[in-house]
Amino acid sequence: MRENPGEEDRNSGQVPKVRAEGFSFFYGKVEALRSLDLSVPENSLLTIMGPTGSGKTTFLKALNRLNDRVQGTHHTGSLLLNGEDVYGKGVDVADLRRRVGMVFALPVPLPMSIYENVAFGPRKQGISSKKRLDEIVEKALVSAAIWDEVKDRLDSSAEKLSGGQQQRLSLARVLAVEPEVILLDEPTSGLDPLSTMKIEELLRVLSRSYTVILVTHNPVQAARVQGEVAFFYMGELVEKGPASSMFVRPKDKRTEDYITGKFG
């Protein structure tokens, strides 16, 4: 495997969980990601920040191949999960998506009960034992820190939960399929500060046992959740480093302008 200059890998010697090598992604002729080189070690938290149109979401949707649904896209370079190209031949896309879970900007309660929302993924995987499902659902809801709030009304509609609860339910739904990587696309953009705090706290906890990639346009959030931060701008990775240093001494002028609120 080619070593990337300027990319320090704290777990060098080990295969990074996620790695992009000269990865470009196109919608028709528009290049949404430009020759991206990036790696994310296992059980870590990476926050990708950047303004609208910087390619953050494209990166997430390439990783779990949700971009397959868009017509007229193509890519160059490679995007690796555990050292294997996610676009490689013989990749089972459904299986890939189970390994790479995703939470969206708006909470999406599927039109069914709380229980069924969480059991959705496992059921589609073919798990049908009631006992097994009960265990999975409880464990996922506990991990997403929402169990206590919903344990008495698992059968009521998920649409009745508050926005913050719905977003934690979305997270539980992802956890229920036991992913290796969790992608979150601006998960707190529609939430109040208190709910946002709960989610951020949760992400720090989860990053001990999962590889978490959080996308946000808000530098303050990136600073709050700590971990590694990558700054995307117009489809390019401008710089990447620990939050602690990036917000104190940004290397690039564009990063500095962005975190000081000059644009974005």
Binding site: D95, R98, F104, L110, F120, K124, R173, V177
Partner: peptide, 20 residues
Amino acid sequence: IYRETAYALGASRWQTVTSV
């Protein structure tokens, strides 16, 4: 977004159509 959510959970097309 319902479809995206189901697909992102590893549901197949037919599963997405019938259950969501």
